[in-house]
Design a binder for these strands. Structure first.
Lengths: 203, 203, 203, 203
DNA sequence: TCGTAAGCGAGACGGTACGTCCTGTCTTACA
DNA sequence: TGTAAGACAGGACGTACCGTCTCGCTTACGA
């Protein structure tokens, strides 16, 4: 039961939609999350405010779509599987280092922080995010881990979600909270520590 | 080099300060981060807006102080060391479960999310947070881990910061992003997995 | 060259405009000039502050419009010519007595003082006032004086502006500065003295 | 019945008093009436705000005192009688032209307009003004007119207050409302017209 | 083929909050 | 006790956006 009468999506102007998504992404990068306004996005996109309110329920949803559009409508080579050279540690380091590079890219810094904030405060958006962005990437990661299990490089009884959390969570946190330098050394350390575990080796 | 001329802290009204911190904490819990306004805090605290602007540079700094006041001026038993029964896994599970309970406490939910958001967008605040809230608690955790090293329950060559990140990061992330249920089972899983590592046991 | 980008007057809400003008006039009468605030007017008119700032450059301009609206959109019989019974002195006394009555009317007291103050401090507003309120009424007065000249009741070489100033100025001043009682006796005295002049009669 | 307990005037700091009066006069000239603030005056005078509130009940009263101080403690040659050369018209023109010059002096423009405004809105201040500034000067003017009556240059049955109003009122109004150029020509015209009257000369 | 109903750019509207400035009162420390 | 200094509760300033609304205008569909 949609609160507002559903607009006729078939007549939607794709020009306006793309301009809005691009403007939203660019603007949040320029002015930051705190000063990002619907009014500003509309002006930057050369669009009436109503056109934004008609199609997106919240600023967070718009931001989220801007992200989706970027990854979906982009070069789209991105969605490929994780590398599998047979060396699990090396492969994970490769991926985690790439994540670090992306998080440190100033073009993505503000937009990602903005999106993260909206997710933290909006459960509905969080669910959307979980399903449409986190889930697919998480599956790719779990696929790689499953392959490692088949190759005898990963314990059989490990909960793969926990494993993914333990590998990628620390990097995300360090980026969000700036509790320390975020670089490839850290990425490597996390992979090594996670794989080996904290316990001393049996003699 | 303070931007605004430093007010004379010796004349500061402690009554007003405490009323503001309490009002800020209470209000963010009631109305949520998005609708939290300086104006509202001032009104709730029975205080002029200028009194807030005089002493805090930003809403985030105020929120942060409200948190600090809570932990510092409260029952203050909080700052004690982590439990050390000799059983590292059990002790860590105890602490992580407590963390989970606290994160799930509705009284702290909105305030913590709000503070987190401000930290994510304000590097200066992040530094403050790192030094005055994260650092002390992190040291306590590292102390417990060091004790475990001395007891031969933890590898000697582990980076303790990475270890802490790997134990507490996943829990924080699951809470922030709601990517899954956050309960004691998850806490236990994280501890077990982190301690054991992802690799299969040597035969 | 308008300072602010000219808003589209064709879309202007006449409802809001009238509510604002009425509220301004009423409020200044109730609370007085010193406590008259844009905020208060907006609230009383049930209007956003921006709607006032959008259409009026200053409180004085608003007050002025409130006056204009009153005289223009009112019963509009007001703009008629001065009476001409053939007896100049009697006619002038009639008009000046009416002026005195109006100035003493508590409904107009505060608003007129407020408008006067704004005019005194704002040359642009003074020009507007001169052209759109003072000028038309001054012309009516001069018309009556011209008729008197034709009827041989007024010297031919009199500067009519000076004459008008000398008839109406003293009344206005006495009202503004409260330097003495303002009643019909005073009005009559002024007319008589102005007509006769200060010099002794030739024997 | 003073609202606040009367401060002990004997201990009053004359330094502070003079600094405040001077600062008030100077400031209103610089920033204008609308932006004149007690806070600004106190700062400019190097004085605490309380010192102003202690001794003056309102901004208008302070402004008024600033004026009084100027005329009283100044070169004080000002308070002398009006010139009496035997030629009434010439003498009045001299005085009225001097008035015009003073009103056109930019140093006095803002302060006088400010004082005028306060008087218009504050009956108590108006009474003070009438008694302590207007009255003395009015008496001097009436003295000159009385002398003219004795010399047979002015009708015996003229109300001198009305005469003064008719001579000086138009000039003051023209200055306040800027309804026309204020110069010596106008001064002369007023004097001539007032003396002669508006009626045609008897044949 | 021609209404006509939708999406659209534009922007006025009633509101809320911003961060600043000032008011008039109060408190502190000094002379 | 008067003073300089300035914190305080309060309130208005003028600005920026919110989300809703109404206006003409294109633009495509169905009668």
């Amino acid at each position: 039961m949609p609160k507002q009468v559903a607009p006729d999506a078939s007549r939607r102007s794709q020009t306006a939609r793309r301009a809005i998504l691009a403007a939203a992404f660019d603007l949040v990068g320029e002015v930051g999350y705190a000063k990002l306004s619907i009014e500003g996005i509309a002006a930057a996109a050369g669009v009436g405010k109503q056109t934004i309110y008609r199609w997106w329920p919240s600023k967070g949803a718009l931001l989220f779509d801007a992200f989706l559009a970027l990854t979906t409508e982009g070069e789209d080579g991105q969605t490929g599987a994780l590398p599998d050279t047979g060396d699990l540690a090396a492969d994970l380091k490769l991926v985690l280092r790439a994540t670090v590079v992306e998080l440190n890219d100033p073009r993505y810094d503000q937009p990602m922080r903005a999106l993260h904030t909206e997710i933290v405060h909006d459960p509905a958006l969080a669910a959307d995010y979980a399903k449409r962005l986190d889930e697919p990437m998480r599956e790719l990661k779990k696929d790689r881990l499953r392959a490692a299990q088949r190759a005898g490089q990963l314990a059989e009884d490990i909960d793969l979600d926990v494993a993914v959390d333990m590998l990628f969570g620390p990097v995300l946190n360090r980026w969000l909270q700036r509790t320390g330098p975020l670089n490839s050394e850290y990425a490597d350390q996390v992979v090594d520590t996670a794989l080996r575990g904290l316990r001393p080796r049996e003699p």
